[in-house]
Design a protein around this nucleic acid. Structure first.
Lengths: 201, 201
DNA sequence: GTCTATAAATAGATAGAC
DNA sequence: GTCTATCTATTTATAGAC
């Protein structure tokens, strides 16, 4: 039996090309949305033809891969800390987003696009967003149990977790519209204001 | 000279049909974006063929009409009040959005879609959004001059006007993703929290 | 004023040569 | 593993019948 070379196995050209295609799809879907994007635009970014892409993925399979890519990259930064540190960690997440603009474009474009029940990623993205807010709620409860902040009503837990998520989303939109916008500074201020509010000043 | 009938002049069928088409375009562009929408979808909503639409508008002209429609309907509610009343007026604006879901979908979809410099409405929407934040800054200054709140630094004026806009945008996104979301309640709470913060508690 | 028919361009996808 | 060629469906847009 012949020894495997670099052109076979998990490190073959095919695997590398697949990653290149997914990477290009993240950028193109991110800036034009799923419906507004074409395979040719993605193919041009990679430097191949649409046929080369379709050897690996249909357009909808490519969307699935992009969503997987998103899920694998997003939560790493926030996963470590608990309680208030979790919320302060959003500052670091903004640095990540500054250097991965396509990633954030993808996120926000999909979130709005997926409002349409006919969108292939509709259910996935709604659940993803609901989970993100549920995570914030859990971390707010953790902060209370760690005695970092006093207890609050369940209504306020609902509000504060949604509001924190809304503020970050909204500030990110403004940075996308105006790249000169001080995303890190403004998010940092809003985190500290939220914590002050939770602490009852 | 013959007397004008209902089939001629500014109240002719053509004018009515034009309004129907723009109305349908607001909904379809709103839920699928500009790039993701087709003239056929809009035509089906109206109950005509694509040819009937193209008698009046090209696809890009239709986008222009939709943006005009947006500009003419949005600011009425907020235009009356000044100072803190301006910000409290956002509560009423939410009631309007609850009953005009397509309108809000249009707004948010375009805002994210227009992140792409190739989008036909790119410049228009960036300027529109910048003006919205500038308006909030002016109203914050008005509130200071009306002695409703103490003065704040120019940096804080920048931050607070952006943050207010971000919060409303973010909460609206959550309502679009989950129609059961208590948009009016949460926006009201965030307005009151912002005012408390501005008043120095 | 709207339709049918059709044009021209572009979309996603497949087959087969190299 | 990628390309060219091709297919089918769809999209924007036009022309002409009614």
């Amino acid at each position: 039996m012949a020894i495997e070379t670099a052109t076979r196995g998990p490190y073959s050209n095919g695997v590398r090309r697949k990653a290149e295609i997914i990477d290009a799809a993240v950028r193109v879907f991110g800036s034009k949305g799923y419906g507004g994007s074409t395979l040719k635009e993605i193919a041009d970014e990679v430097g191949v033809t649409t046929a080369a892409i379709l050897r690996y993925f249909s357009k909808e399979e490519l969307l699935t891969e992009v969503l997987k890519y998103w899920d694998n990259h997003q939560p790493d930064i926030l996963g470590i800390a608990g309680g208030l540190s979790f919320f302060r960690g959003f500052r670091e997440l903004m640095f990540f987003h500054l250097e991965n603009r396509g990633f954030l474009e993808l996120f926000l474009t999909f979130i709005t696009e997926a409002t349409d029940p006919d969108h292939p990623a509709h259910q996935f993205l709604i659940e993803r967003h609901a989970r993100a807010i549920a995570d914030m709620r859990s971390q707010l409860i953790a902060a209370i149990e760690l005695n970092e902040i006093p207890a609050m009503s369940t209504q306020m837990l609902d509000y504060e977790s949604s509001a924190f998520c809304a503020m970050v989303d909204g500030l990110e939109i403004q940075w996308l519209l105006d790249p000169a916008f001080d995303l890190v500074g403004f998010v940092t201020t809003s985190i500290e204001q939220a914590i002050e509010r939770w602490q009852g000043r």
